[in-house]
Amino acid sequence: MNEYWSARVEAAENAAKGDVSIEDLPIRSNETSNAYSVRFNGVGDYPLYAYLHIPKSDGPHVPIFQAPGYGSVVAVPPYERRSTYIVMALCHRGQRLSNSRYSAAYPGLLTDGLPGEDIYIWGDIVADCITAVQILLQQPNIDASRLAITGGDLAYITAALTKGVHALQTGALMFADIDNRTAGDPDYPLAEFNDFKRSHPEAWGEARATLTNFDPAELASSIDANKVLFSTGAGEKDYYDQLAAKLSGETTVNVNLGKGHLDHITQEDWLAKACGVEKGPAHYPRTS
């Protein structure tokens, strides 16, 4: 772990030692799981919110940290996961429910604070995730030896900076292969990098150096998860194959079929198998 991350990880882990409020959230509880609102402070005493769902069945349960995606809304975790795993879904600083002091813009968040590495917002956002994982691990009735982390860049980076991750399910990494993927006219959010380059050409060199801290290839040697799944489109398979070769754990690169139902089954089956659990009952389609 480099100097940039070591100080941030230490601060994030210390933040997890602060007060944590856990309140019932009856409207999101159901017949298989109880829901809770979790409130705690991230680095800089920033107030954060997370959903926590605990199965009603006997534990111990496998904990999943569902890392936030790129958007203002963090969804309540899916029905099947809530019935099977202890799931935490964090709203990082700037997202709804964690936006009392800072509200993220879309587009805008991906370059907020560039070029300087000290104020690039993603350093603190990653720290929020690390703090949240530590709080998840403090919960009773969990099997910490099977900690799973799922999601995009924030899942990958959090897994790289957290010891003892068992399973990592990830893909579609925004910080991957930035130079090649910003050539031409990429869609948003990647286009945000081009907007920044066009507006601040003199600062791109420093910005690019800052972004190296988030580059999956640079962080690969820090990933010690036992099992890793990359889900990707066919066009980016080579990149993920190369990334997989740098990881120490048992790594699978799965090319999505582009059929959401089948791709979802593949990912959830992999997760259940990796964690050694019975997958929750499918709720859709309902049969009659």
Partner: peptide, 12 residues
């Protein structure tokens, strides 16, 4: 679109 979910064919 068979076997598609909320993606509703965008991937195929």
């Amino acid at each position: 679109y068979e076997d598609c979910a909320h993606d509703s064919g965008s991937g195929v």
